[in-house]
Nucleic acid binder design. Structure first.
Length: 148
DNA sequence: ATCAGGTCTCAAG
DNA sequence: CTTGAGACCTGAT
């Protein structure tokens, strides 16, 4: 589906959300909508329209124990509410880099708001990149939520 | 067993 | 202000 920063893709598994892909440019829309996909899209639009919207979707997440811990923490963050890698690391008794690794592995950006994790000085990275179009999307999201 | 990451901190220039 | 080294924990090979 189209998004202000480009486009957004949705992959379902057993009617549950498995993967979200963020694209910097518009893509040809995929027109086969199941009921579950439609609901995901509905919530996506709601969020894109109003940053205060909070997702409530069934997820099909696969990851290590550590990754799940980090993702669980992230899900408790409300829009515009930022944390640093170091902060999360202390709360989970781990290291900042390990947190970064888990964020990088996040399959469902926006729903698990890895974009709300920033470096102590600087913005950090997004989707495996520290510069380039991915970072432009992170910036857009932060602006959208009115974060600094 | 090794290496590279979405980092942090601290000590020098 | 800028740089560099070391510490840090995980995931992948």
């Amino acid at each position: 589906m189209p998004a202000p920063f480009g486009a957004l893709g949705v992959v379902m598994r057993d009617d549950r959300l498995a993967t979200i892909t963020l694209l910097p440019r518009a893509a040809d829309p995929f027109t086969r909508h199941g009921r579950a996909v439609a609901e995901v899209c509905r919530q996506m639009q709601a969020y894109l329209k109003d940053p205060r919207f909070e997702f409530d979707l069934p997820l099909a997440l696969t990851g290590t124990v550590h990754q799940r811990k980090v993702w669980r923490m992230l899900r408790r963050l409300t829009p515009g509410n930022l944390v640093t890698y170091g902060d999360l690391a202390r709360r989970l008794h781990t290291s900042a880099r390990a947190v970064g690794g888990a964020c990088r592995a996040n399959p469902v950006p926006l729903v698990v708001p890895c974009h709300r994790v920033v470096a102590k000085s600087g913005v950090g990275g997004f989707m495996g990149a520290t510069s380039g179009p991915e970072m432009a999307i992170k910036q857009w999201l932060l602006d959208h939520e009115g974060a600094r």
